[in-house]
Design a protein around this nucleic acid. Structure first.
Lengths: 140, 140
DNA sequence: TTAAATGCAAACGCTTTGCAATTGA
DNA sequence: TCAATTGCAAAGCGTTTGCATTTAA
C-alpha cells in the first residue's frame, strides 16, 4: 500500500499539496530535505508554503511512513520507510554520502544487545570518515 | 600538555574568558553544550557573551583540542580530545546517554575498511535505540 | 456543512557575524 | 603599541506556531 492510500485509509485528506509532496518523496532516490521538497513543490505549484511541507512530513513521520536522518549537515533528511533501511557513509573530505546495507551492522547490533542490553535502532546511522578517493588525495 | 599551554604555545592569548571556558570544559565529565558552558561562565563572570563561547570552541576545535558530537538533540556537544574516545548509546525512551567504549566498534571499523575502503572515524558515534529499563517498561 | 488543512507572517532556538571598544603580550 | 579578542546587537538558518481563510470529504 502506497503512502497516499495509507493517508486516505487513516482518514487524512488527500490535498493537492500532500499528493505532490508524497510524489516528490517517491521520486527522490535518496534522502531529501524539507527545503528540497519545498523547492520541487514550488516548481509545480507556486502558491504554497514550506510550513505545509514540514507539517506533511511530521504527519508522515507520525504514521510511520517516512523516517528522518541527521547526516550532520545541520538539517534533517527524510525518506520513505518502504524504500528500505540502510546506513550512510559520509565522507568528511568530499561530502559524498554512500549507502551501506543494513546487514553491515548486524554484528554491531547483536553485540550491543548481548553486551549492553541496548536495543539499537540502526536503521539510519550516519558514519563519518573518509572515502578511498579522498584518502588517496590526502584530504584528511 | 593541557589545553591552556597548547593555546599559549600556538600564540593565542590566554584571556580570562578563555581560561574559564577551558576550566569548565575540563571540569565537565561528559559532553557539554555551548549553552551549558555559557551558563557556567556567566555564573563566574556576568559580563560575558555566548558568542565568545562559540568562538573559543571553534578555535579549540581548529586546534584539535576538542571535538564535537551531535547527539540528535539539535545541538552540538563538545568534549576534550584528551579525555579519550567513546561512543554514545542514546535512549529514545528516557533520553539517557550511556557511554560505550571505543573498542565496541572495532569490528565495525575493520569491516567498513575491508569491505568498503572507507576509513570510518568512529570517535563520536551516537547510536539511538532503547535501554533495558525502557524496554521493560514498554516505552517503545 | 465543517473539521481538517493551508498560507501567511511572525517567532523560535541555536549559531554566526559585523563592528566598535577593549586588552594581553 | 596594536593585532587579537571581546561584548553587543543584529542577522542567519532551519524549523515551528498562531490565526484567519480555504477546502476535501
Amino acid at each position: 500500500m502506497g503512502i497516499l492510500d495509507n493517508l486516505k485509509e487513516k482518514g487524512h485528506r488527500l490535498t493537492p499539496q500532500r499528493v505532490m509532496i508524497v510524489n516528490i518523496l517517491e521520486e527522490s532516490e535518496g534522502h531529501i530535505s524539507a527545503e528540497e521538497i519545498y523547492s520541487h513543490l514550488h516548481d509545480r505549484y507556486s502558491y504554497t508554503n514550506i510550513s505545509t511541507v514540514y507539517r506533511t512530513l511530521e504527519l508522515l513521520k507520525e504514521l510511520g511512513l517516512v523516517t528522518q536522518t541527521d547526516l550532520g549537515e545541520g538539517i534533517v533528511r527524510y525518506h520513505e520507510v518502504t524504500k528500505g533501511h540502510h546506513h550512510h557513509l559520509v565522507c568528511k573530505g568530499c561530502g559524498k554520502v554512500e549507502d551501506l546495507p543494513e546487514s553491515a551492522l548486524f554484528v554491531l547490533r547483536d553485540k550491543l544487545w548481548s553486551d549492553y542490553h541496548f536495543r539499537a535502532e540502526l536503521s539510519h546511522l550516519a558514519i563519518f570518515g573518509y572515502c578511498q578517493k579522498c584518502l588517496e588525495e590526502g584530504k584528511t
